[in-house]
Amino acid sequence: MRPVFAFAPDFRARVLALPQLLRHGGTGSGAALPGGQSEFLGYRSLSQGDDLRRVDWNIFARLDQLHVKELGRGEAPEVLVIIDRSGSMADATGGKDRLSRELAVALGHLGLVGGSEVQLCSLGEGGLVTLGRWRGVKRMDTVLQCVERLEIPRGGTWLGALDHLPPRSGAGRACFLITDALVDPLPAAGFAALGRSDDAALFLLSAASERSLDAGRWSCTGGEGEAPLDLSVERNLQSAYLAALAQHEEAVTALARKHRIHSVVATDEQPFEAAVQQCLRQSGAGG
C-alpha cells in the first residue's frame, strides 16, 4: 500500500499567512521575499494572503473592487526549490520529511507571491526530477498538492545530480536546497553549481531524535543503501556520534559558505516559519 502523507489541517493557513508574518515578524532590515519588488507592474484582484496596504484605495473608490498593485524589478527571478527525497530524509518519526515538504511549499508560495516562476524539483533515485513549474499566487494549492503527493523518501542520495541544474533564466534564479546532506563525500561540484545562482540557500535538516542520541538500543535502517545496523549506543559511541554530527554540519555549512550559499540548520522540532525567517534574514544580511 502506498504510504500517504498529509499536511496538518492548519498548514495551508500558515503558509498563506507566511508573507504577512515575514513582513511584520521581522525578517530583518533589507530582507526581501524571493523575487523582490521595486517596480510597478500593474493591478490584480486582491487574493487571500495579500497585504492590505498594497490595496489601491483609489481604484476601490472608483470601481468598488479591491485591487492590489503589483510591483517588481522588471522580470522576477526564477525560484527553484529542490527537495531531497533520499531514504535518509525518512526518519523514524517522519519529522524530517514533514519539515522538508513544509519548507518546499512555503518557499514555493513565497516565490509565487513574489511573482516568480516557481520550479519544484525532487532529488532522489532518479536524479534531479522537475515536478512542476508554476507562476501566480493562485497556484499555491497546486504546489501544495504536488508536494503532498510525493512519496515517502527512500533510496540513496543523489546530491551529485546538482551538477545538472537547468540553466537559469535571464531574470536570475533563487535556488533553495532542502536536504540533510547525509552523503559522503559532499557534492562539491553540485554545491558549486548551486552557488552559481543569484541567491542560493541550503536548508540542512535533521530530526531531533538524531541530534540527541541517548544511550540504549538503536537500529539503523541503512537508508542510504547500506546494511542495517543494530547496535547499542553507549557513552563512547554517543559522544563520537554527536561529534560526527557536528563535524558533518560544520563541513556542509563550510562548503556552502565557500560557494556563497546561505545555510540554515533546522530540526523537525522547530516550525518551518522559523527556518524560512532565518533563511531570509541571512539572505537580507548578505545583500
Binding site: S88, D91, A92, D180, L213, W218, C220, L237
Partner: peptide
C-alpha cells in the same frame, strides 16, 4: 532492539569507526 530508528547511517558509521 528498540524500534528507535535512525537514518544517520553515515554518521553512525563514522562514529563507530572513531571509537
Amino acid at each position: 532492539p528498540q524500534r528507535r530508528r535512525l537514518t544517520t547511517h553515515m554518521l553512525l558509521q563514522r562514529a563507530m569507526q572513531a571509537t
